[in-house]
Design a protein around this nucleic acid. Structure first.
Length: 474
RNA sequence: CGCGGGAUAGAGCAAUUGGCAGCUCGUCAGGCUCAUAACCUGAAGGUUCCCGGUUCGAGUCCGGGUCCCGCAACCA
C-alpha cells in the first residue's frame, strides 16, 4: 500500500462529542497510527458538520449568531480529539471558505452532468420543527415533539437522478471495487438497492444556515450532500490537483451503521456523476448500549468520553472501547465494565508485570539491559488482525502475552532464582522484558502513551523499579 | 409474507470449511511473597431459545415457531 486515506464522519455540532463519536475517531486513529508506523503515507481526516436549520435554531436559543455558535461547538470536538490523543492530519469544518468553494465547484459539475433536474417535493411539514417530518415519526398523526398536526406542503427542489445508479452501484459493491463491511451491512445495502432507488432532492427552499445553490438563489444545498463532500475538500478538490490525485479515492470511510446509506449509495453515486472514483471501502461499526439500554438524553445515560479520559486516562478509554466490543458489532458498555478492564487487564495484568519484573531486575541483576534486537518470539500475527479490523482480538492476543509473562515469573520462581542462579535469572528475565517490549510495540496504535512509557523505561541504561502505570482509582 | 442482526455457564462474550462447547468476570479450594491486597494452580457451574429434518456426527446446515434489537432514506 502506498498511501492510506482514512476519514471519520464529520460530526454534527448540535451536541458535544459523545462516546459514539469518540469511538469512531479512536478506531480511525488506531488505523492511522498503525499505517504510519508501517511507513505508509497516511492522511487521516476528522472534522465537524456545521450547516443546517437545527444549528441556526440552537444558536438562536443560546443567543448567538450561527457562526460563533459553530466556532464554539466545533472547538469542543477538536479539543476532545486532542485529549484522546487523536492524530488527525486535518480538521475540516463545513463553514470554512475552502469548503464553500469546493462545494460550489462540485455542484456546478454535477449540474453539467445532466443528472439533475428541477422538480417538486411534497411532504409533511411541521411548523414547530420548521422542517419536513416523516410519516413514520408521527404519533397518533401528530408530531411527538410539538403535538401539532403537520401540513402537506409542496416546494420546488432540484433533484439528483439517484434512481439510475442502482445497477452500477451493485456491480461495484459485488466486485469489491467498493467494499462494504462488515458482511451484514453489505447485505443490507444490496437489498436496499434491490428495492429500487428513488431520486433525491439536493436542494431546499429557504433553509437557514446552508450553502447557496450556485445557479439558483432561491435554493440552498441539502446539508447532507454539502457535508459528504468534505472528504474531497480536505484533499484539495479543485484547488490542489496534485494532492487530490495523490490521496483520492478514500481508502476507508469509517462510519456508524446509521449512516451507511449516505456513504454506500448516495455518496458514490454523486462521485460517479462528476466522474470521480468511488471510495475503496466503507466500514460501519456498531452501536453501544449502556447497561443494556439505548443511549439517550431522555434516559440521561449519556457518557462523556472526556470525563472518562480525565479520570482514567485517554489510553484507558481507547483500550476499553476497542477491547470490550468486537469491532463492527453492537456492544454494551458501562463505567463498571471499564473499571473491570482497568483493574483486571491493565493494573493487575500489564501494569503489575512491569512492576514486578523491573523490581526483580533492579534487585538481582542491576546491570541487565535489553538489546535492540531482542524481540520476544511469537507466531501470533497482530498486523493481520489489525488490518482486518479485529481490534478486540488483537488486544486479547497481546494480553495472552502479558499472562505468559506473569506466569513465567511464578513458574520460574524468579525471586528465588535471583539468589541461587543469576545466569538463569537473567535468561528468563530477558525473555519477559522482551515480551513486554514486543507487547508495547504492538500496543502503540492503541495506547500510545502507555506504550511510550514502557519502552522508554525498559530501554534506559539501567532498569529500575517502575512506578505504577495504572494507579488505583478512588 | 418490507430489510437486516441476535438468543451459548450466575453475568458479559468466543467457537475456520459441520468434528471432544471455550474465554473473561464472579463463586469455591489450594499455592506463592517479586509485584499496584497484585500473581499462579485446580474445581464447581451448559437441555447452545423451542419443535422437527439432513448427517456417522449439528451451537454450526435445512424447514417451522417464540422472544429481543436495529433500519424503513428530504433533522443530521
Amino acid at each position: 500500500m502506498e498511501k492510506f486515506y482514512i476519514t471519520t464522519p464529520i460530526y454534527y455540532i448540535n451536541d458535544k462529542p459523545h462516546i459514539g463519536s469518540a469511538y469512531t475517531t479512536i478506531a480511525a486513529d488506531v488505523l492511522a497510527r498503525y499505517y504510519r508506523n508501517k511507513g505508509v503515507d497516511t492522511f487521516f481526516l476528522a472534522g465537524t458538520a456545521e450547516h443546517g436549520s437545527k444549528i441556526a435554531t440552537s444558536a438562536e436559543k443560546a443567543g448567538k449568531d450561527p457562526q460563533s455558535f459553530a466556532d464554539e461547538m466545533s472547538a469542543k470536538f477538536s479539543t476532545a480529539w486532542d485529549v484522546l490523543q487523536i492524530t488527525n492530519n486535518d480538521f475540516i469544518r463545513t463553514t470554512e471558505k475552502r469548503h464553500a468553494e469546493a462545494v460550489n465547484k462540485f455542484f456546478l459539475k454535477l449540474k453539467d452532468s445532466g443528472k439533475i433536474y428541477e422538480g417538486e417535493y411534497e411532504g409533511l411539514y411541521c411548523i414547530g420543527h420548521e422542517a419536513f417530518i416523516k410519516e413514520s415519526e408521527l404519533v397518533n398523526g401528530v408530531c411527538p415533539d410539538h403535538k401539532t398536526k403537520p401540513e402537506m406542503v409542496k416546494e420546488k427542489n432540484w433533484f439528483f437522478k439517484l434512481s439510475e445508479y442502482g445497477p452500477i452501484l451493485k456491480e461495484k459493491i459485488l466486485s469489491l471495487e467498493l467494499v462494504v463491511a462488515p458482511e451484514e451491512r453489505k447485505n443490507e445495502i444490496l437489498s436496499f438497492i434491490d428495492q429500487g432507488l428513488e431520486d433525491i432532492a439536493i436542494s431546499r427552499q429557504n433553509a437557514k444556515f446552508a450553502l447557496p445553490l450556485p445557479w439558483d438563489e432561491s435554493q440552498t444545498i441539502y446539508v447532507w450532500l454539502d457535508e459528504l463532500f468534505n472528504y474531497c475538500t480536505a484533499v484539495g478538490y479543485g484547488t490542489d490537483t496534485e494532492k487530490f490525485n495523490k490521496y483520492w479515492p478514500v481508502d476507508m470511510h469509517l462510519v456508524g451503521k446509521d449512516i451507511i446509506k449516505f456513504h454506500c449509495v448516495i455518496w458514490p453515486a454523486l462521485l460517479l456523476a462528476i466522474g470521480e472514483k468511488v471510495p475503496k471501502k466503507v466500514f460501519a461499526h456498531g452501536f453501544f448500549t449502556i447497561d443494556g439500554q439505548k443511549i439517550s438524553k431522555t434516559i440521561g445515560n449519556v457518557i462523556d468520553p472526556i470525563e472518562w479520559a480525565t479520570k482514567y486516562g485517554p489510553d484507558v478509554v481507547r483500550y476499553f472501547l476497542l477491547r470490550e466490543v468486537p469491532f463492527g458489532q453492537d456492544g454494551d458498555i458501562s463505567e463498571e465494565k471499564l473499571k473491570l478492564r482497568y483493574s483486571g487487564d491493565l493494573a493487575n495484568g500489564l501494569g503489575n508485570l512491569l512492576s514486578r519484573i523491573t523490581t526483580l531486575v533492579e534487585k538481582y541483576s542491576p546491570s541487565l539491559v535489553i538489546g535492540e534486537a531482542q524481540l520476544w518470539k511469537t507466531s501470533d500475527n497482530i498486523d493481520e488482525l489489525i488490518e482486518n479490523y479485529k481490534f478486540h482480538e488483537a488486544l486479547a492476543k497481546m494480553w495472552e502475552w502479558v499472562a505468559w509473562g506473569n506466569k513465567a515469573v511464578d513458574e520460574n520462581k524468579l525471586w528465588e532464582l535471583g539468589k541461587t542462579d543469576v545466569k538463569k535469572f537473567e535468561e528468563i528475565s530477558t525473555q519477559i522484558l522482551s515480551c513486554l517490549v514486543t507487547t508495547s510495540t504492538h500496543l502503540q496504535p492503541f495506547m500510545p502513551e502507555v506504550s511510550r512509557k514502557i519502552l522508554e523505561h525498559l530501554k534506559k541504561e539501567k532498569i529500575t523499579k517502575a512506578e505504577p502505570l495504572f494507579p488505583r482509582v478512588q
